[in-house]
Design a protein around this nucleic acid. Structure first.
Lengths: 339, 339
DNA sequence: TATTGGCACTCAGAAAGTAAGAGTGCTAAT
DNA sequence: ATTAGCACTCTTACTTTCTGAGTGCCAATA
């Protein structure tokens, strides 16, 4: 087991390193913190920490830098997360107030989170899971096309163009629309498939194919959107912190643009402590993220849909602040959406 | 007037500089191009070009680099734009095929443009200008709220939540919805205000306020979306070309994230030659763009709505290729949307 | 008049050398 | 277990030197 004082030393190293961006040595450590022991003693502790692969010396005569493992231990021992200051709380309130629809709210949220942390922020759109259908609209578009609009009780709107392959029969579409709404109004998304089964039979044989087609599209919409979309803000922050990422931001930037990767990353993360999930450096499955850390928290939409939001930054980030911000924003968002 | 050969020299300098990213000197210039004259002569020409502020020497004994003005002249003299190769054309076809709705199509387009040019690509959503309304939907959402969905014949869907301030009367909403659709179906967006005038009078006095409120929101939707949204792709390319931007990408990145600035930038640009509009370095009104160039072209949606698309990169970019790509993609997009 | 070879001159950037300082590990004493 | 002391190690920053690409100008040439 690692003695208490050594852990304190680790914490001090992490803190100083985050603040100064310089490897920290035994001397400056005793200067800045009151350990009540001499530098030599600290050096012994440091040797121990290095033994445990918690810190690492870039070269022989340099100070130490926390390893991913070191950050991890540091974070896990972070028993109480820093509270946000009054200014930050106020900022959150101001930012959130007066947003009307889902798009607007999430857009504001992501910008808020980014400006709060000075990192890249991301917000995942709610998954449809437990939402229910409020309305289905079918609108003849071009000659042979129908526009389907799906509205859920969480205020989400999805649209999709369906190519029927033959001219649209408006009366038929109106009928189908009416039936769909009667059947599906209030139905949970997961029950849609069940609910519409057999619906095609109630139509004239000539129309069955079209009904099938439209239903298939409907189900696809319901289903496909389980893989959700993510919005981002503060990408410029990555570049500002460029040298914090051992020289190469571009893999990170590329990954960020690739929704798929981001989604994968996010869904792999399950809430751990304080309701926040954390991946440090190489803990991330995607290798381009080996110098990046991801802080994620879940939030809830009114229909108890759940999705995630968080920030991405260099491993050398201020975990305490970022965790606090992510957690607070997630809570506020849940509250806002609760209305 | 500047003699022909000097202009040739300018062209050669621009080309070589773009290719090598190094200031180009008289010696290497005569080596690479067959001018039929000696380096000394070229030097005289270069002195002339420098006189005219078309090229510039970073320091006394270095080669020359084109100035913004030099690039400008180069581009203006570019009488025939490079044609895209077979591979690129194929790429465009493949990329575009099978996109269903507007979102999908524009999303693909922006990624295509980015991968074609290796720059940051942007696509502006069509402005509503000449579109007409296909359908208005009013859906009771929460107790006191109504969700308004506006669908145009260009496939655009807008949504907005309206807070009524009192409980929603479903029958009333249904009535209003019906009337709106009767009145507005097919109406051009610019005629909406006219068309709904006096509509409130046809309702019971108790409902007038609500009608007014909803109509106001409708008009706001129609109008507010004239300031359109822009989607981006390939931001990572900026960072890869970081040193092409005299050291500071971050103002560019920040501007890019700020839709407003981008919109302003784009709307200021009017088609010049080849249907393409170009701003080089300091020609951009926004000062953060002093080391960036913007290539923009308009495209048309079916309803003859018009919007723009283009790329952003360092002033030291391959104008010929980029102009060709932007122009080609704009054409393909117009064609695709024409269906 | 336009072009050219020749030449002295400039200056950024690379290479090499030097100096300073922060930090380490080890040892012997407390 | 802690500490002071010390020799040793490297990185970083700073100087100095060198080199070569490139220039501008001039006098000669076509």
């Amino acid at each position: 087991m690692i003695p208490d004082r050594s852990l304190e030393v680790l914490r001090a190293i992490v803190q100083d390193y985050i603040a100064s961006k310089e490897p920290v040595g035994s001397k400056s450590l005793v200067e800045r913190h009151s350990f009540g022991v001499s530098a030599a003693t600290i050096r012994n502790d440091m040797a121990l920490l290095e033994e445990e692969d918690l810190i690492h010396a870039p070269h022989t005569s340099a100070g130490r830098v926390p390893t991913d493992k070191g950050y991890r231990l540091f974070v896990d021992r972070l028993n109480e997360v820093k509270q946000l200051g009054q200014a930050e709380r106020q900022a959150i309130e101001n930012f959130m107030v007066g947003s009307a629809d889902l798009d607007e709210t999430l857009g504001r949220t992501v910008r808020l989170l980014s400006s709060l942390t000075n990192q890249v922020a991301m917000v995942q759109y709610p998954t449809l899971g437990k939402a229910s259908i409020r309305h289905v609209e079918l609108i003849p578009a071009a000659d042979t096309r129908v526009l389907m609009v799906l509205i859920t009780d969480s205020g989400r709107i999805q649209q999709h163009v369906i190519e029927l392959g033959e001219n649209v029969d408006e009366a038929f579409i109106a009928e189908l629309r009416a039936k769909l709404n009667t059947l599906l109004g209030g139905a949970s998304l997961s029950a849609v498939a069940e609910t519409v089964r057999g619906l095609a039979e109630t139509f004239a044989p000539a129309k069955k194919v079209q009904v099938q087609l439209i239903l298939a599209n409907l189900l696809e919409q319901v289903d496909a959107n389980r893989q959700e979309k993510i919005i981002l803000a503060g990408t410029a922050n990555l570049v500002k912190r460029e040298d914090d990422f051992a020289g190469s931001v571009s893999p990170v930037l590329e990954a960020i643009e690739e929704q798929v990767i981001l989604l994968k990353l996010i869904t792999e993360m399950q809430a751990e402590q304080h309701g926040v999930s954390l991946r440090i450096g190489k803990e991330n499955s995607f290798e381009g993220f080996s110098t990046a850390s991801v802080v994620v928290s879940g939030y809830e939409n009114q229909g108890s849909e759940i999705a995630k939001l968080g920030v991405i930054g260099p491993t050398r980030m201020d975990y305490s602040t970022n965790i606090a911000a992510v957690r607070a924003v997630a809570r506020y968002l849940t509250k806002t959406l609760g209305n």
